[in-house]
Design a binder for these strands. Structure first.
Lengths: 339, 339
DNA sequence: CTGAAAGCGCTTACAG
DNA sequence: CTGAAAGCGCTTACAG
């Protein structure tokens, strides 16, 4: 690659000192209009762009970068989340360094180290479950916000979803309709949302006086394909579940695909009970009634970024970790009724 | 925020010169093991992380950053694309600066300028249609790769989809089945994919000896909601279309939602013909047969990143813009047959 | 094997 | 209003 022109190149081209170029670029009014014009002309002629890294190095202020580590951008939920983060970041003139962890703590650790090395002003992380690397993080140096999930014992801000109540409401809706053998499909137990949603699920059973079946509780499904396999196994049990509760997008999709296959083969008797966390596209095309426990993922992103910016603006000495909880809403979809 | 420790802090703490710290951090073998240990201990004690920006500034090599500007991460297609880019970037030790343009050229322009200012080694852009700012880009300084869409007259690498043939095949499938009034829903005409897919669509009509209807050709739908409105307008025509061709994910979703509403209301007679670019989740739950023109979005991302890395490694003097075209495949979905 | 000096591209602080 | 000097945090190039 050809070397990019520097501020000194512009100064030479314009016949002024580097300081004058710097001043013009900074928009200072204290430069003769005549020189300003010269500088602008040279900038355009050389295609000069100020090196922001060098600039921030000298200024010692923020880099204007936020590091975002999410588990999987492939899940539309997280895409929404990122959009919310970007929205707030952009309005404050900041950009996003983005990386995915694929639920791999090792990768998450490297990503965070790398982000910090690149001088991000703060980190927004959807933690994948590991703890060690997060304990090494220094929130007094680089503020950290957990989005959607949290990790116990790490001093960081967090934007969470009201998982327990959401799951309670979703599961209760199924139990109220008479379902007694509700399968639970969740993430790995090291993920806080999975634990919290299971908690709400179990509380709902307790309050309904229904004994949950251990063998129907399956944690660890990461992708839609894995969830589909788990759902197929459950459906093949001697006593299959009469309802499904899924803690996210990917698990719901897996359940629906498993059910869809049975349905198409004419081997599904009666509509199953369905309660899922998170909305998804084409939900109106699902033939069976569904209860969706929804919340605004973009808002979770916005709040995460807002918390981070607040932390950055705050006095380090008085800062204490804050946690925000986003409420969920129950959405009753009738199903298109042809089942 | 508390100041982060610097290399000099580590040196003082360890009682060595900054150079020794630098050498240890660089993994040099020419440092006494004893001093190496001291340095590592100080690094751990202070929570020191090397400032990559300062490092790159001195080294004058690449920043290890790739700027990615996509139109809308909300569209799962682009999420896949980003995943492909990240995959290749990560393997070469690079990270992603990500921003969305929302099809706004002004925003795209600011994003690209900002990325260049932040010393990205290269840019991968899904262009939103504007040209001016791209003409100011200097590929000899910062290599540029267009992904999925291209812009005429800008010297850049490009990874495109075989839009013309894909659209030709999709439209031909509809015409072969006897559809004669095929609606076309595409992006704005300034978007290359939209133009190219329309071209294939029209060629298919020409070869089939069918006159396309101008009033059924609707360009400009950006979001699923907009597309749904357009589809509803088309369906309300005195002579509504008997088939729909959509050039992307968002337009397909809009068409399906419009049809779904009619269907649920019992006001849809006979299954409409459907041919769509791009796959989408829950496609098996659509009751009507569909032809999907699919390709591997992640591969488009991977190829874009690969082209960029090749360009970076190449001799600037001999570089010429390269363009790769990814083939499409026709997927015939039967529909679940209950319509 | 170790370190003092200089410089990457900028801006701050000081002179004039 | 303009500029020469110094420094941000690091590494290169030169000494020893």
């Amino acid at each position: 690659m050809k070397q990019s022109p520097t501020l000194v190149d512009v100064a030479k081209h314009a016949g002024v000192s580097p300081m004058t170029v710097s001043r013009v670029l900074a928009g200072s009014a204290h430069v003769r209009p005549e020189l300003q014009e010269k500088v602008h002309a040279s900038v355009a002629a050389l295609g000069y762009r100020r090196n922001e890294n060098a600039r921030h190095l000298r200024q010692g202020k923020g880099s204007g970068l936020i590091g975002v580590a999410i588990t999987n951008i492939d899940n539309p939920y997280y895409a929404e989340l990122v959009l919310g983060i970007e929205d707030v970041a952009r309005q404050s003139g900041r950009r996003l360094l983005l990386g995915t962890t694929q639920e791999d703590s090792e990768r998450e650790s490297r990503l965070i180290d790398d982000f910090i090395g690149r001088q991000v002003e703060g980190l927004i992380v959807v933690p994948s479950g590991g703890r060690g690397h997060l304990r090494r993080a220094r929130p007094e140096q680089t503020p950290l916000v957990f989005a959607s999930r949290t990790v116990a014992g790490i001093p960081a801000d967090a934007v969470l979803v009201d998982d327990v109540n959401g799951a309670y409401d979703g599961a209760t809706a199924l139990l109220t309709r008479g379902h007694r053998r509700v399968a639970f499909l969740g993430n790995s137990e090291s993920v806080s949302t999975s634990r919290r949603r299971l908690e709400g699920f179990l509380l709902a059973h307790e309050d309904a006086g229904v004994e949950p079946e251990q063998q129907l509780i399956r944690l660890g499904g990461q992708t839609a394909d894995q969830a589909q396999q788990i759902a197929e196994q459950l459906l093949a049990l001697p006593e299959p579940p009469d309802a499904f509760f899924a803690t996210n997008n990917r698990n719901s999709l897996g359940v629906l695909n498993a059910l869809g296959a049975l349905y198409a083969a004419g081997r599904l008797d009666g509509p199953p009970g369905l309660a899922f966390f998170d909305h998804f596209e084409l939900s109106d095309f699902v033939p069976w009634p569904m209860v969706l426990v929804v919340h605004d993922a973009r808002e979770v992103g916005r709040l995460s970024a807002q918390l981070l910016l607040d932390h950055l603006a705050a006095d380090a000495a008085t800062w204490l970790p804050r946690s925000v909880q986003v409420p969920t809403t129950l959405l009753h979809l009738p199903g298109h009724g042809l089942a």
